[in-house]
Amino acid sequence: MSVEAQQGIATPRIPAGLGGLLPALMLIGLFFVVPVLALLLRSVTDPAPGLQNYAALLGDGTYARVFFNTFLVAAVVTIVTVLVAFPVAWMLAIMPPALASILFGIIILSMWTNLLTRTYAWMVLLQRTGVINRALMGAGIIDQPLPLINNLTGVTIGMVYIMLPFMILPLVGTLRAIDPMTLRAAALCGASPLAAFRRILLPLSLPGIAAGGLMVFVMSLGYFVTPALLGGTSNMMLAEMIAQMIQSLLNWGLGSAAAFVLLVVTMALYALQLRLVGARRTTGGA
């Protein structure tokens, strides 16, 4: 509906229609923007005015390792999620509707199940004496339990599990929007399946992969619960460090500075993601 079409019908209402936004803007302004800005202010005033919190954060090797770990985990999780999600989304996009709706049901069930429930299940499954280690030992594949929890492996499994639906579902949309004729044409012209995949299917789904992957990366960067429960102390992530600085160490200055670093990185990547999705929409609509 264009603006002219809406203006053409003269229904009496508040000219700008801004009134309806007031409650939402008051809520977000007062209880979101103000507290976040106050936190930012605290990072440069607590305990004394200045940038010493940021200097401490960026100058210390311990914190540098946390930053590095955070990016490492987010990157590993994103790559694994993309690799696992793509074939599933591909099948979902073309499989018979009855089969697809069962698969969608499973995905939604896992996505809607309480986050702590899912993480608890992985804690039990992955522990030293857990089902997975016992099964592997029972099958004679290993004779020592594998360290699957409190390390990068545990965090990756738990996080990929949570992120998969966020990658699969949008990717199905991207893949469904591709015209199967383009691939039939490629086959007719003699392209091998591998060539058709590499030169047609993959490039056409790349915008969806990039947008979904970036979203998974951004979400992983700031994740708190799963890394805190499945990760180890040697590979702590940023969100957990922030929570610890505030809750256990009561170091508000340093904690809010770290929070602000996380905010800036997240928002910058989010802006990039919006541009990617926006670009896809305009090209898709043309």
């Binding site: 936004l21 977000i28 209880f31 979101f32 923007v33 507290p35 951004v218 700031g222 929570a243 928002m267």
Partner: peptide
């Protein structure tokens, strides 16, 4: 811009909002 502002709580890492609103 307003829509983006109202949707921001969804993308900001919850831990940042959590300590901000906790202090507030």
């Amino acid at each position: 811009i307003l829509r983006g502002l109202l949707l921001t709580p969804m993308v900001l890492p919850v831990v940042v909002f959590a300590i901000a609103i906790y202090a507030f």
